[in-house]
Simulated scan of single mutants.
Amino acid sequence: MSDTGTWFVVAVPAALVGAASFGMASAVQQRATKQVPNIRTLHPRLLFELVRKPIWLASVATVIIGLSLQVVALAYGPLMLVQPLLVTSVLFAAVHAAWLAHRRLDRLVVLGALACMGGLSAFLLLARPRGGDETIEPQAIPLGVLLGVLTVVCLVAASRFPGEIRVIALALATGVLYGVTAALMKVVASQFRAGGITEPFQHWVLYAVCLIGPCGFLLSQNAFQQGKLISPALAVITTVDPLVGVAIGINWFGERVTATPAVLGGEALASLVIVGGIVLLTHRGEVLRREIERVDPGDRSEPTWG
């Protein structure tokens, strides 16, 4: 079977089912976070509260299934095909959340999610990252510091601003940590292939994954708990994650991208589409939040569109 045939027979179905798994799990997780006390950002007590919820534990198992399918999709299809398909988890999450709450979807939310997916698709298609290896280059430090500073700024913003701004800040920090974790896991996988199961334990990368990955997951639960709506947070997470991955691939692993003036212009437009989608989701989310609170100030359930 040709590479293209394998993409559509294996990679596309695996990516779509994986996205559906992520979306369903996210909708369930957000609903579960509404059933436990509000807990400050990055406090592990939130996980201790959630682990008592059987439905939340089931959602974690669904996430594991989604991650496994993502690995299958990436094994048989290119990044620029798989990652945009995974962004459809935003739509799956919105549909599933609306179904759980017996409420309707909002058209502007769907439009914002499609803008994020389309912008990311165009960006990756134009960039076409390729080459590189799994060895972190010395010049990784400046980008690592930048990503660390960005994460801290997001956490500070989340502590100072209420509403959807807080949710977007938490989601942005989550996406950064997820992107870094994915890159480091790539290094761990290469160490395992080169030296066996004991090799990764001899390097700092595995221990960084064990720290950064759980922090990212905890932040995602904070974002879900703080937001009345799921799509803005999930759209930011699933969009920022691969974009951080591309930046790390270029800076840390020496990957190459197409960089002609026309391509750079197209990437800039694609980035604007992504930002526009996130702004639309944020603005619409704030409007719907106020509508929900006006109707029922004590309502912590899923909103009209998931």
Score class of each variant (00 low, 15 high):
L85G: 04
G195N: 10
G179T: 07
A73Y: 04
T88V: 01
E199H: 13
G132V: 10
H96D: 03
V187M: 09
C154P: 02
I141Y: 07
H96E: 03
W204M: 07
S89D: 06
A93N: 00
I136D: 02
L211N: 03
A140Q: 02
L69P: 05
A208Q: 12
V72E: 08
M117F: 04
I136M: 11
L147E: 02
T151I: 11
M80A: 15
E137S: 12
G132R: 06
R107T: 09
L69H: 02
V82L: 05
V152K: 02
R166V: 05
E164K: 08
L81T: 12
A122G: 09
V95D: 01
L147W: 00
P129M: 07
V149A: 10
L147D: 02
V71E: 10
A113H: 07
V156R: 05
L170P: 10
F161R: 06
A189W: 13
G175Y: 03
S159G: 15
P214V: 11
G131K: 06
L120A: 06
P84Y: 05
P84T: 04
G195D: 13
L170E: 09
Y178R: 00
R193S: 15
P129Y: 11
I197K: 09
A98T: 06
G119H: 06
T198D: 13
V145Q: 03
R193K: 13
A182H: 10
L172E: 07
T174E: 11
P78K: 08
L206K: 07
I165D: 10
A194G: 08
A101L: 03
E134S: 10
G213W: 08
V87H: 05
L86E: 05
Q191F: 14
A157D: 13
A115K: 02
P78I: 06
V152N: 01
V152A: 08
L120I: 12
A98R: 13
V156L: 10
R130I: 00
G195A: 13
P129N: 03
L91T: 13
P138V: 09
L100K: 13
V90R: 09
L124R: 00
Q83V: 07
A208L: 15
A171I: 07
D106I: 06
I136W: 00
V205F: 08
A183D: 05
L69F: 10
V109Q: 13
L211K: 03
L108M: 12
V95E: 05
